[in-house]
Amino acid sequence: MISITERHQHIINKLQQEGQVNVLDLCDQLSVSSVTIRKDLKLLEDKGLLFRTHGGATQNNPYTIDRPVNEKEHLQISEKTRIGIAAAKLIEPNDSILIASGTTVMALAKSIQPHALKNLTVITSALNVALELLRHPEVEVMQLGGLLRRSSSSVTGPYSESILADFSCSKLFLGVDGIDLEFGLTTTNVMEAHLNRQMINISQKAIVLADSSKFGKRGFGRICGFEDIDQIITDKGISEHTLNSLQGMGVKVTIV
């Protein structure tokens, strides 16, 4: 029978390889009960070697905090820029698109080349995105109204949601705070999560823009599951396990 030390080493090795582990998978691999695995995970968490999650564990703290936008814009700058450029290439003439809030979708706004597009309409909840696109007279910009979140410089609430009910958009470009293979896509604000769900509902295609640091993270407000999105654009920091899992769920993943 495998020893507790060997079990713990196996768990740590799997975490280093894949970034997260699943209780049922570990039961099969180690031929022990789920009770034993959960005790192992608790012991390892007590030693500061992992963070337990629902049904498993992860190498990094899965819970995100609400940071102000002027702080987040200095994180993963090059990755966000490449993601924004790739996302801008998906915009076509005569598109009516939704751009949600966040520093990665702001990188998209900066990458849009309006002179190459005709009749582009942009609806956005983010003040900084609207101000960026106002520099281009060729772009029709509609700013949603509602309660202004100071940390994200974007609006939320029932008023912004009611405005969306009158529109149908070709594409949604969505920024998120966390992408968890079990819990789905999340943000740190519940009202923003609800608005994001409304955006998904009125869009023909939902495209998530997220650098690889967002994977394995959870925010307080759940936006949706992976069945509700079509594509994720991210950087090469995504793990092979996460990439294969997303593709297995039918999500197109573009790595820049």
Rank of each mutant, 00 (worst) to 15 (best):
H136Y: 15
R149H: 13
S160T: 12
H115I: 03
S151Q: 14
V32A: 00
V141F: 06
E79H: 12
L30W: 00
S245C: 04
S212V: 07
K89L: 13
I91R: 07
V35E: 02
T36V: 09
G157F: 12
L243P: 09
I83C: 11
L185K: 07
I163P: 13
S152G: 04
I207H: 04
G102W: 02
P93C: 09
S33N: 05
R67E: 14
S203F: 03
V176E: 11
L127G: 00
H74T: 11
S154M: 12
Q76F: 12
K205Q: 15
T103G: 06
A100L: 03
N128H: 03
L134I: 11
E161A: 13
K89P: 00
I223S: 12
K14Q: 15
L49A: 11
Q76K: 12
L108C: 05
A126K: 00
T234L: 06
S212W: 07
K110W: 05
T242D: 11
Y159P: 02
T254N: 11
I255R: 15
V32R: 00
D180V: 05
F167P: 04
I11D: 03
F173K: 08
E140H: 10
V139P: 02
I202V: 15
Q143E: 02
Q16P: 08
G225C: 07
L24C: 03
S3H: 01
C224R: 08
K42P: 01
V141M: 06
R52M: 04
K171T: 06
K14R: 13
Q198W: 07
L127M: 07
G146C: 03
G219E: 05
K171E: 08
R82G: 10
T121D: 00
T234N: 07
F226D: 04
N70Q: 15
V105Q: 11
I238N: 04
T186G: 03
Y63C: 05
D177E: 05
D46W: 02
S33W: 00
I179L: 09
Y159Q: 09
D95L: 12
T242W: 01
G237I: 06
V21Q: 01
I4F: 01
Q20D: 10
P62N: 15
G248V: 05
L50N: 08
I179S: 06
I123M: 07
Q17V: 04
M199I: 00
F183V: 07
I207R: 00
V122N: 01
M249E: 05
T81P: 01
S213C: 08
Q9P: 07
N128S: 05
L117G: 09
L15F: 04
R197C: 03
Y63L: 12
R7W: 01
Q247G: 06
N189S: 14
G216P: 07
Q17H: 10
I77R: 13
F183D: 08
E161M: 15
S101P: 03
G102Q: 10
S203C: 04
S239F: 06
I4H: 01
V256K: 07
L181A: 09
K118H: 12
S96A: 15
A109L: 07
V129H: 05
I229D: 01
R222K: 13
